[in-house]
């Protein structure tokens, strides 16, 4: 190996040795029996008055949100992502768990993990905020909204969101919805945004402009709640990654409710399926031959 590689190896080894003993962090830590520091403040003295949502936002951004910001963020969770419906794919995990008499936390944590889905949940949410920023950047560079959307809509998709081996969120994320094109959450969330005076933000306006253009380009794509969630948070200057952190637990209210409900039902009573519910389309019956 060349001298350069030797030097690189030396640096790598030094890093490994250094990191084996220390974890430098500005996030915080526990001083046993004394205090807990959290981004430079005392959790027990400086932050103990915060609501749970304020603390979540503080952990993400390092800033304590204003009361009306907090109301918006909590409202986004309550209105948009807290359906106690056990048929929804992530909620179903908690339902199946407690109805199979696993623990609620195992079901809830698995349900949260499952919320990183492609047709709903975290992946389209992140894609949507990224899409909105992307479109805004292109507009700032002088491009035309209709042209941007047409180019995206007519681009060859490497994959589909709904099925296939390489699924990814839709080309125009945040528009269109599985099961129904109508999004009943839209009005309540917009009402909340208005109440909090966040209804005139630049990215929210962009979302409406996109919706108008799509009526001509792809009328089947109606704005769904992901666009409103993403636009409202973008107007609060959240980056896509911060938005991801923000939504990471947003389904937990509905998932918890489903876990509780299914635990009260008779064990094994959640839509048991008979054997003939399996629609088989594989190889015909055959005999195994030992090698």
């Amino acid at each position: 190996m060349s001298k350069t590689n030797h030097e690189m190896d030396h640096l790598k080894l030094n890093e490994l040795l250094k990191n084996s003993n220390i974890w430098p962090t500005e996030m915080g830590g526990w001083q046993p029996g004394v205090d807990v520091s959290f981004r430079g403040k005392s959790l027990l003295k400086d932050l103990n008055h915060l609501s749970w949502m304020s603390l979540v936002i503080y952990s993400i951004t390092g800033k304590i949100p204003e009361p009306k910001q907090c109301e918006l963020y909590e409202g986004i969770w309550v209105i948009s992502t807290s359906f106690p419906d056990p048929r929804l794919w992530n909620n179903r995990i908690a339902t199946l768990a407690t109805n199979s008499r696993s623990t609620p936390v195992l079901g809830i944590s698995a349900g949260i993990a499952v919320s990183e889905a492609t047709i709903y949940g975290h992946r389209p949410l992140i894609a949507t905020i990224d899409f909105l920023y992307d479109v805004q950047n292109k507009l700032d560079q002088g491009q035309n909204l209709s042209d941007i959307l047409k180019a995206l809509y007519h681009s060859t998709a490497p994959s589909y969101s709904g099925k296939g081996k390489n699924r990814s969120p839709a080309k125009i994320p945040g528009f269109g919805r599985p099961i129904t094109p109508v999004d009943e959450r839209r009005k309540p969330l917009l009402d909340l945004a208005k109440k909090c005076q966040y209804h005139q933000g630049k990215i929210l306006q962009l979302a409406f402009d996109i919706e108008q253009q799509l009526k001509i380009i792809a009328p089947q794509l109606k704005m769904n709640i992901a666009t409103l969630m993403a636009a409202l948070c973008a107007d609060q200057n959240m980056s896509p990654r911060e938005f991801y952190y923000f939504v990471s637990l947003c389904f937990s209210g509905g998932i918890l409710a489903c876990a509780i409900d299914a635990e009260t039902h008779h064990e094994g009573s959640f839509f048991p399926m008979p054997c003939n519910a399996i629609r088989y389309s594989g190889k015909p019956r055959r005999q195994w031959k030992n090698m």
Binding site: N21, I22, W23, P24, T25, E26, G28, G29, S37, G40
Partner: peptide
């Protein structure tokens, strides 16, 4: 091991 307040 924790060095609180030290930048990464």
């Amino acid at each position: 091991g924790l060095q609180v307040g030290v930048p990464n």
